[in-house]
Design a protein around this nucleic acid. Structure first.
Length: 285
DNA sequence: CAAACTCCCTGTTAGC
DNA sequence: TGCTAACAGGGAGTTT
């Protein structure tokens, strides 16, 4: 039988939508299964506890639920524990019905009682697993999830207003708001017409409200485009077409200006100088 | 306290 | 064509 796996290209670095899709994918395939074997092929893929303890403690654990927390895939286990996975740059999962030849970049393999296996593939070795008892250990360090309805526009406005720096680095800070990565940060700022270097305190409440709406619309759309099982066992994230991300030197789809790339907070940042002004111009000078 | 580095990694790409 | 060096990127840790 063919392996079930997820497909990813350069425009699909795991951010909130991809993690959500992945969590659903694992949930659909691994629910109620019991782990019978754990192979850690790259030790550092396991952040905590030690790879040895990690493997031992997972034996006999049953998958009770799979959810998403920010950019973490959270697997709730019985006996009570949480297995968290972070895909970082290049991580992805595949599920196999039969034990097949090992994929080149396999870092961790979880085998279940029905002899299926969940394989973690991660070329750049940045992905990490955490086995913890209290989910709060992680959630306490995260800001509200970008899609959590408990994060109201008013609250978001207050959160942004109290900050002194630029808006883009703030969107990437998981302790501020969880789930947004470099691609969606650039895209949502473009959609809202806000320059990435714009100072938070200078933003009008109305703009911040629009920004949150843009973030959510882009994330939701990406989720809906991903996660569709095409039937041949391949889960495709869908073709997400960035408006600015990775389009340096190309024409803005809105104003025909030329997309620029700058570095903000050590991150490549793409924006349209025509649509995203740093200073509000008052007509013709 | 926040911003800026440094490091972890390797596939991809630019430059020769 | 083939080689090398630079680069990208999320987050943890360290320094300014």
């Amino acid at each position: 039988m063919q392996a079930t796996q997820q497909r990813r290209d350069s425009n699909n670095m795991p951010e909130l939508p991809e993690v959500e899709t992945t969590a659903r994918f694992i949930r659909a395939n691994c629910l109620n299964r019991t782990i019978t074997k754990v192979q850690v092929l790259w030790q550092r893929s396991v952040a905590t506890p030690s790879a040895k303890v990690f493997s031992r403690r997972l034996l006999g654990a049953k998958v009770m639920d799979v959810l998403r927390l920010g950019k973490f895939v959270v697997i709730r286990l019985d006996p009570a524990a949480f297995l968290l996975g972070h895909m970082r740059m290049s991580g992805s999962f595949s599920i196999e019905r039969l034990v097949s030849a090992s994929h080149r970049h396999t870092r961790v393999v979880f085998t279940f009682d029905d002899e299926s296996a969940l394989r973690f593939i991660d070329p750049r070795k940045f992905g990490r697993f955490y086995l913890i008892n209290d989910l709060n250990e992680v959630s306490a360090a995260l800001g509200p999830d970008a899609l959590d309805s408990a994060l109201t526009p008013d609250r978001f406005i207050e959160m942004v207003k109290s900050k002194s720096g630029a808006i883009k680095p703030l969107l990437l800070k998981q302790s501020f708001i969880a789930g947004i990565g470099n691609i969606y940060a650039d895209e949502s700022l473009w959609l809202t017409g806000i320059h990435p270097l714009r100072k938070c305190a200078e933003l009008q409440p109305k703009q911040v409200k629009r920004l949150l709406r843009a973030i959510r619309s882009i994330l939701r759309r990406a989720i809906s485009k991903g996660g569709t099982d095409s039937g041949d066992g391949v889960v495709d994230y869908g073709s997400f077409n960035p408006r600015v991300y990775g389009r340096e030197g190309k024409q803005c789809k809105r104003c025909r200006g030329i997309i620029r790339r700058i570095v903000v907070g050590q991150r490549g940042t793409h924006y349209c100088p025509g649509c995203q002004k740093l200073k509000r111009s008052k007509g013709i000078k």
